[in-house]
């Protein structure tokens, strides 16, 4: 995880089930690369095509709800998603994101529009859209969760810190 992220916003709606949109669960015989090219087609046709590495997804509440597969996170990472901002996340999606090195920001999304350039300070818990003079704070993740993200996920984190200690 980079603690500072600057990227263009791509909007999605409420209660997006990422199993449905970002895994091969419903695409038997297809691989993750295929899933990454067609991610979110069902709710926003062409979404993945206009997405560039380093961009940010901004979505409605309960993003990733009822999504239990970590493969969905791997697909989001293949797409180059730098972070997802939403008012709330599905529980297992939240776990899987941290475990697989995808940064999440739990914050209200009012005022964030398609195409805005947003900058995120994950350590300080601050979100900015400079051209709109919008500044919003959010609660940063605890240090160990940030360390997991910094390491790129739980498995690389444990290789470096097999006792979970970060000091």
């Amino acid at each position: 995880m980079k603690t500072l992220i600057v990227g263009k916003i791509h909007l999605l709606g409420e209660k997006i089930n990422t199993d449905l949109h970002c895994s091969t669960k419903y695409l038997p015989g297809k691989d993750s690369a295929y899933a990454a090219k067609h991610a979110f087609d069902g709710v926003s046709p062409g979404f993945a095509t206009s997405f560039a590495t380093g961009d940010v997804i901004v979505a409605g509440s309960d993003f990733g709800i009822n999504s239990s597969r970590e493969q969905a996170i791997q697909v989001l990472r293949l797409m180059g998603v730098a972070a997802v901002i939403a008012p709330s996340f599905g529980r297992q999606f939240f776990r899987n994101a941290i475990n697989n090195g995808l940064s999440l920001v739990e914050a209200p999304i009012e005022g964030l529009s398609q195409g805005d350039e947003v900058s995120l300070d994950l350590q300080e818990g601050q979100l900015k859209v400079e051209k709109k003079s919008l500044v919003r704070s959010f609660s940063a993740l605890p240090t160990f969760a940030q360390a997991i993200l910094n390491a790129g996920g739980l498995i690389p984190f444990l290789e470096a810190h097999p006792d979970w200690s970060i000091h």
Binding site: F94, R95, N96, N99, L154, I155, P162
Partner: peptide, 19 residues
């Protein structure tokens, strides 16, 4: 309920993070 990475962590360290 958890996922595969969680189980891997438990097998290796006996611990896991929880909210």
């Amino acid at each position: 309920g958890v996922e595969g990475t969680d189980v891997a962590a438990v097998l290796m360290t006996g611990k896991l993070w929880f909210k």
